[in-house]
Design a protein around this nucleic acid. Sequence first.
DNA 1: CAGTAGATTAGACAACGTCTAATCTTGACA
DNA 2: TGTCAAGATTAGACGTTGTCTAATCTACTG
Lengths: 153, 153
Amino acid sequence: ARALDKVQYQNVSIVLADMKPNVVHILEQHGIQPSAQRVAVAEYVLHTTEHPSADRVWAGVQQTFPIISRATVYNTLNLFVEKGLLRQLHLAPDSVLFDPNIDRHHHFIDEDTGKIYDVPWNQIEMSNAKPLPGFEIHGYQVVMRGRRRKSRR
Amino acid sequence: ARALDKVQYQNVSIVLADMKPNVVHILEQHGIQPSAQRVAVAEYVLHTTEHPSADRVWAGVQQTFPIISRATVYNTLNLFVEKGLLRQLHLAPDSVLFDPNIDRHHHFIDEDTGKIYDVPWNQIEMSNAKPLPGFEIHGYQVVMRGRRRKSRR
DNA sequence: CAGTAGATTAGACAACGTCTAATCTTGACA
DNA sequence: TGTCAAGATTAGACGTTGTCTAATCTACTG
């Protein structure tokens, strides 16, 4: 695997000091060419416990990697989803969210803030989650909605 | 309750022949002023088993009620949701969908066509669907994804 | 050191949903 | 019935999200 400790674009070169080689390996294991931009996006999106939107990722990555375009972030995130590195969530009306947790789990949505929380898979017992007749099921999850309880005593 | 058998706008009057008075009562029961446009939207959206988007509703209503603007359809659908007549679904990346079925139920998404099917509430047995600590839960549902099975023999 | 495949880019573009100011209709009241 | 205020509707502008395209750049090959 290559070092990938710097990248240059348009005569400007950028040193990627803190890039853990770990991320490069993850990309390669998923059959993704580890360009510097992709490493930067992976570095951000795989190390968050939130569920950021594409533009949120763009803003976050730009802080450590200023030279990256919006199109690349969108391309990269879609590539990661295609390669099984991320999952897309369609839970909010505003935008698609990306979930770095690819293990089975459920979601809880705070209706006030829009924040999304992971719920462990085995916290909910479920049975008879069968597909419709004539269909095959690819996956399922429980989506819960609620809001923070008023503190009382 | 008023008759509401016609409406006029900009010197053009439209007769609402087939409007079931039933729909007018439903609107009034939910505290909604039954204008002609609202009745037309309700007539369409409450009598479908699909899960149309707002623009889909607009197109559908226009076939029987040509004089209605896009803004009114959006306003009306949002009003219906606010008054508990419809529910919003955030299942697809493209647009918000509206569900005339306000009873508890689950959903199955055909990943090929994007079509959404209702799944009866009691078909799935679930337990321990508790809120996160410090939260109160407002509702929950199971979202399943899959595709039509290839026919074989 | 060229040549080529793949990655990146800026900006145009399309779709969805909201907003605003103006206009219209309705219902109340005289 | 005529007037008026409150509410409903409208066209179009606008903002955001996401995709697309053609051009440019980088990295790999020999």
